[in-house]
Design a protein around this nucleic acid. Sequence first.
DNA 1: AAGTTAACGATAATGATTATCATTATCAAT
DNA 2: ATTGATAATGATAATCATTATCGTTAACTT
Lengths: 126, 126
Amino acid sequence: MSALRNSKQRDAVLRVLSERYDHPTAEEVYISVKKVIPSVSLATVYRNLKLLESEGMIIKITTPESDRFDGHTHEHYHFTCNECKRVIDLELSEGLNVNALPKSFGGKITGHELMFYGLCEGCNKI
Amino acid sequence: MSALRNSKQRDAVLRVLSERYDHPTAEEVYISVKKVIPSVSLATVYRNLKLLESEGMIIKITTPESDRFDGHTHEHYHFTCNECKRVIDLELSEGLNVNALPKSFGGKITGHELMFYGLCEGCNKI
DNA sequence: AAGTTAACGATAATGATTATCATTATCAAT
DNA sequence: ATTGATAATGATAATCATTATCGTTAACTT
């Protein structure tokens, strides 16, 4: 059943994401990886982003603009600036009590994603 | 500055969404509108979905799979089934206290979107 | 009734993501 | 170390949702 092999490209994708905190797009990850492995293909970056996400090693953040990726998988939330489209980490003062939430729901909840919208500090001042 | 005119097509898009509770995709809205206005164009449906969303009359729900639309704009949340990809409304037993949330954040929060993931009632039984 | 232009229908263009396929690299078994 | 099986790659074609273009139609103002 398709054992996973080592690959420099996959390692590079993972390293790039673990070192960045700005939630890059696939294209931006590609640019970063190219600096380490100039011959890398965009398709390989897409492949490994998908694979790493399915392995739970990175998180895909779906925004109205574009998909972005996060190498830090601890529970935290995100903010998208409506102006500059930047995605910023938000730590919550009190955690989201997921268990208390659904009033009547027959299925099983295994995860959730919370996105805030508005203006970031920089764009709010303009 | 570009006054808004009436249009049967836009009315039809809005009516379809107000009568449905299953969060259809643009394509599915198109199919529904076609039953009332067979000559309608897919481009017109996209145009009006975008316009109605910017007017705050409908909500666009961005999911990892596809964008979906909701004609009911009161505050409520959604659940996506990882199996059948259905999007279901979730009313919360206790509201999300947005104001208490951000620990330290210099910007301005104007909205948020909360999506739950898991297995819906049907898929959970299989 | 005529003029202005928002909105339309049809369709081409775009852009992000995925599929294909020949080649290369990883790794277990020898 | 060598070999064989196949996962992974790079290059690129294909796909598919969305947007742009453009000539025509229809809503509203005068």
